[in-house]
């Protein structure tokens, strides 16, 4: 096959300039700091509060998506119902919709006079400008990851395995708990990790629906932006590096998960 040198050369050049140099540059700047400076900037109370919210809300969002994403994938793969194709297409809305628009409309929906807030706020459920709002926005943007990771796995799952459980006397619930869920678990975990990673880095949708208050509703990416606006470059880069390392670790974990899962799919 021809073209290895040329295509590989261009690929490495492109990735090098566009991805590796920027990452390297930022790491270089952070390495110029002393460890104690880095640690101090990375663990200011404001930063800690931001991590807590970012990780906590992302974790919650990923959990919610693991449940509803699994349900959606199951319904889309296993059942026939009118409008199924439309629902399947709609799952990708969060991929296709600019996050700023998602934040805008969600903030409006959950505000006291929005369509949903109108009913929810009197019940004490405040979806806009709160930590709950952050979770809602993150659920929205990361939903497709959970569904789309699970769908192909479910489609390729042998129906015979479930029938085998039935011939051995297992009821539907039992089969679900002991046969179906364990074999879906790697895919559910992968979907969870992907959702989590996406939620952690999300910025656009959250700043619309959150009140963006320090210590309360300020997520880590927003903290970076605020620090940047105050010309606190070192502090901004420190937080950025923390997030970067977490994303790389997550990416590696997802790859490992997928490799582990492929063992059982043979």
């Amino acid at each position: 096959m021809p073209g290895f040198r040329r295509t590989m050369g261009f690929t490495l050049f492109y990735l090098g300039v566009l991805v590796l140099l920027p990452i390297g540059g930022m790491l270089f700047r952070v390495f110029e700091m002393t460890w104690s400076d880095f640690w101090r900037l990375a663990t200011t109370p404001r930063a800690l509060a931001a991590y807590r919210l970012s990780f906590g809300a992302s974790f919650l969002a990923a959990m919610i998506n693991a449940v509803f994403g699994t349900l959606l994938a199951w319904v889309l793969v296993r059942y026939q119902f009118p409008g199924k194709k439309w629902v399947d297409a709609l799952v990708d809305v969060p991929f296709a919709l600019p996050t700023a628009v998602a934040g805008l409309t969600l903030a409006n929906l959950f505000s006291p006079n929005g369509w949903l807030g109108h009913f929810l706020v009197p019940l004490g459920i405040k979806g806009a400008y709160t930590q709950l709002g952050v979770v809602l926005a993150l659920v929205f943007v990361s939903l497709p990851f959970a569904v789309r990771t699970l769908q192909p796995v479910l489609e390729h799952m042998e129906r015979e395995v479930e029938e085998a459980a039935a011939t051995l006397g297992a009821g539907r619930l039992r089969t679900f708990a002991t046969v179906i869920i364990p074999s879906l678990l790697p895919a559910i975990l992968t979907g969870f990790a992907l959702s989590f990673a996406r939620a952690l880095g999300e910025y656009g949708s959250v700043i619309f629906i959150s009140s963006n208050m320090q210590y309360k509703t300020e997520i880590a990416p927003l903290l970076i932006v605020s620090l940047l606006e105050q010309f606190e470059y070192s502090a901004a880069m420190t937080i950025a590096v923390v997030l970067l390392v977490v994303s790389i670790v997550l990416l590696a974990a997802i790859n490992l998960l997928e490799r582990w899962a492929s063992h059982f799919q043979r």
Binding site: E158, E163, A164, A165, T167, S183, L185, F264
Partner: peptide
Amino acid sequence: GFVFQSYALFKT
């Protein structure tokens, strides 16, 4: 007792 063509063993 039923033995499936693909065996349908529980992979996990």
